[in-house]
Design a protein around this nucleic acid. Structure first.
Lengths: 185, 185
DNA sequence: TAGCAACTTGAGGTCCCCCTCAGGTTCGCG
DNA sequence: CGCGAACCTGAGGGGGACCTCAAGTTGCTA
């Protein structure tokens, strides 16, 4: 096992990651690995040289995206308006799920707050709980809304996002209805 | 092509339908047909003798269940309280989706109101629109809620139902939140 | 620039599901 | 009964995706 990658190997690795990012975003985490190799212009054997299984590939690709959630979550926590912070976080997260089907599936199968596909996911979990708690504490979010309810909301939205096939207006409209039910007047 | 089925053939057909009902309910519309044959105690060839493809099997099994929706819908329309009629219909439909995964998938892929897996589904569609219109007309359902929004709600609930794996309390709780957002106070 | 380790290749084994059809079995009529 | 039509069987061909590995190629170092 060499300390550093040979030049061609490094290039192939990068291409594979780029192809994986693309295809997973389009088709989800179950996209055929042979298609990833094809798009990378590399043989299937090379793919398995670099990544022993699909999980290894996802472990490289998903955290990149999930880290973006951290930014969203941090912004939500310091939002002057706790309700706006809460809704802006949700909107941002769902928008990302709409952009990247792999993220949509990952977040759904493994709701924020539980142990994650990646450690990053778990770290975000704590922050997310704080966002919910802050909105609840400010009296703008119904008092009985807990982390489990957020997970359920994510389940609900994931299919709406998938089925509305690129039309963000559809899931935003539905989210609006739900938030009306969650808000305290 | 005989006018009437031979006794053993009729028996096998019944067994196949029973097995299909069971397995589709458990595993959804993509359940392996070889497993259906196995449960029916019949060879895979016999299954294809009776039903040329998966669709033919579903066409026999799904309408049975979807017809139950008609009963629900009819009851909703004559409910003294339009809001209760609306919510009771939804609760009943989602409860059925929770009981039968094939129904869950069928209703989701092909939302009530559009052309259906079966003609029965289409017939129910009109009634469902009436239920929505009645609740809206009575001023208890928000005025901007249309049939498309119902389809979206069905998408949303289908995953919640699947993920909550038999615990009806989970999806009922979420539905409660959403209905709070849909109701006019 | 020679030579070896590092890397790539793609045919092919495995698995799971689809569906078919030639040959054997059973029903039920006459 | 006995015979023909109706029916059943399950091995097997086809396809898609997974993953492996022996043989060939290429980058890099000395």
């Amino acid at each position: 096992m060499p300390r550093t990658l040979r030049a061609d190997a490094a290039r192939n690795r990068d291409r594979l990651l780029a192809a994986a990012r693309e295809l997973f975003a389009e088709q989800g985490v179950d996209a055929p690995l042979e298609e990833v190799a094809r798009r990378a212009g590399v043989s299937i054997g090379t793919l398995y040289n670099h990544f022993p299984n699909r999980g290894a590939l996802l472990d490289q690709v998903l955290p990149e995206r999930l880290a973006e959630l951290d930014v969203l979550a941090a912004a939500a926590l310091v939002d002057a308006d706790p309700w706006h912070g809460f809704t802006a976080f949700l909107d941002g997260m769902f928008a990302m799920q709409a952009r990247d089907r792999a993220v949509n599936e990952a977040v759904t199968r493994n709701p924020v707050g539980a142990v994650g596909v990646a450690a990053e996911c778990g770290r975000a979990g704590g922050v997310v709980e704080s966002i919910v708690a802050r909105a609840r504490g400010a009296g703008v979010l119904r008092a009985d809304f807990g982390p489990a309810d957020l997970a359920t909301l994510i389940w609900a939205m994931s299919t709406v996002i998938t089925m509305s096939a690129g039309d963000d207006a559809v899931w935003r409209r539905h989210l609006g209805f739900v938030l009306d039910g969650l808000r305290v007047r």
